[in-house]
Amino acid sequence: MNNLSHHDLVGLFEMMLYIRLTEEKIAQEYPKGQMRTPTHLGTGQEAVAAGVLRNKVSGDAIFSHHRCHNHFLASGGSAKSLFAELLGRSGGCSGGRGGSVHLVDRNSDFYGSSPILGQSVALAAGAAYAFKTKGNRNIAIAFFGDAVFEEGTTWESFNFASISRLPALFVCENNSYSTESKLDKRISLETSFSERVKSFGIRYLRVNGNDSIETFEKSKEIVEWIREGNGPALIECETYRWREHVGPKFDWEMNRSYRTRQEIEYWMQKCPIQLIENYLVNAGHISRQEVEDRKLEVKKQLDTDFLEALDSPFPTAESHLKNIYASRQG
């Protein structure tokens, strides 16, 4: 049981549905070859973004990594500007300059995503330093995958965040795979992320990252704790990526052997959206018919968004060398 309001529960569900159907639309369109950008879909991991970012307030700073669509959308970025970005159009969130791994939407406090491992951690620690200096209640949130624990920058950042007691929330989406390398090849089985993180003086919490209600409730408490000035914290969210590391296919369609179809289908049974959908229906928050109506409505809107994104023009050749320096206009 939980103490969440109808508004929060339905809000979580609707955000996850929006993310899932956006990613599925991309997966459906991607093979046509119009989205010429290496794309890392977040299907299966929606509960982390929706659960954590439901705690975001205006003025917080969100940073993400290569698998960033979920966080972009859950911060408030629009599917239309994401589609346009993947299509390389000037109407894209980054003007067609960034592509799938370089998204930004300052209006929704999504400061940017960057695919080099560990960068989101350092950037968020820096934003948190600014908030601490200003003395406000804003926090910075970094999303990253489990391989980021292998990078030196991460531990340098954790150390600085700890000694400076920065208002930063580090969110690890542990999906057990770094590209095609399983976790047990990359970390000593004698140790745990929990021990490592705590040894730096950072509060640590592990949640079921497929359970949006648990992720939201636990991150809500920890976010409030950070806003009160208690220092940095890390949430490790156990979740699973459904599709291939980069691209729209399933691994079994590509004959990859690093994980079995059975393993993927086992996790699909633990679908984060199905989980909350069943809960909402059983608890009487929403009917199955309303769920189906809602899905159709969102799909229809996304179809329209995609067509409008296609209508956005490509950047002009004249714009190619613009915006190298902020000090030079245009």
Binding site: G112, V121, A122, A127, A130, F131, T133, E156, S157
Partner: peptide, 16 residues
């Protein structure tokens, strides 16, 4: 912590 410090400086600069 030269690398992270530079990233932290970058993040701080985004926020004033």
């Amino acid at each position: 912590m030269e690398n992270a410090l530079t990233g932290i400086a970058a993040g701080a600069s985004l926020c004033g």
